[in-house]
């Protein structure tokens, strides 16, 4: 009888431990399913004259694929960092203008600057759903063999670049593409 009277206490202690651990997790962070999987094949139309790119353009090199949109306010936060990275020519950055009107995306790049080697439009989320995009901005890092190696959810800040992405890009460049 004494033992059974302590069961509710024990259960609540377990629940409490679970909730405390749960507080340390971010429910928004989804694990990416595509890590180490090949980049899906795609061919995105241009948002302005001359642009657009396909999976073939990205093949054979370490590259960043950045999902952005003119309606996305966090992309504005990320944008200056991307401009600096583009100027430093550390790795090519491809832009995916997601769920956006081509002219809005193009105007946005004219206004704030264009960090991308090429930009394609993904109005119907074809590529976004292939990649498992849940919001903008998101950035995917592709290695020389065309596999996705990393997914950044949310803006790339200078800190994220210096601590995570730059070392990864450096090590990926050491790998020999197969």
């Amino acid at each position: 009888m004494r033992f059974s009277a302590a069961i509710p206490f024990a259960l609540m202690a377990l629940i409490g431990a679970g909730l405390a651990l749960g507080l340390t997790r971010d429910p928004r962070q989804l694990p990416s399913m595509l890590i180490d999987r090949p980049l899906p094949a795609f061919d995105l139309p241009a948002i302005a004259n001359g642009g657009g790119f396909s999976s073939a353009d990205v093949a054979g090199k370490v590259a960043l694929i950045n999902v952005f949109a003119s309606w996305c306010s966090a992309c504005r936060v990320e944008h200056p960092t991307l401009m600096r990275l583009a100027a430093a020519k550390r790795a090519p950055i491809y832009g995916v203008d997601w769920k956006d009107k081509a002219e809005d995306g193009a105007a946005w790049l004219r206004r704030y600057g264009d960090p991308y080697v090429a930009t394609g439009l993904d109005f119907e989320s074809r590529l976004a759903i292939e990649l498992g995009v849940t919001g903008a901005p998101e950035t995917y890092i592709v290695d020389k063999s065309g596999r996705i190696r990393y997914k950044q959810i949310g803006p790339i800040t200078d800190e994220v670049w210096a601590e995570t992405i730059e070392p990864l890009v450096a090590s990926l460049e050491q790998e020999t593409g197969s």
């Binding site: 429910p27 928004r28 989804l30 119907e124 989320s125 976004a128 759903i129 995009v133 849940t134 919001g135």
Partner: peptide, 19 residues
Amino acid sequence: VVCQNQSIDDSNAPLAADM
């Protein structure tokens, strides 16, 4: 996946529409 508690049928989000 954008509105974290609805089915794509219930959701207004453009991504849900694309899905």
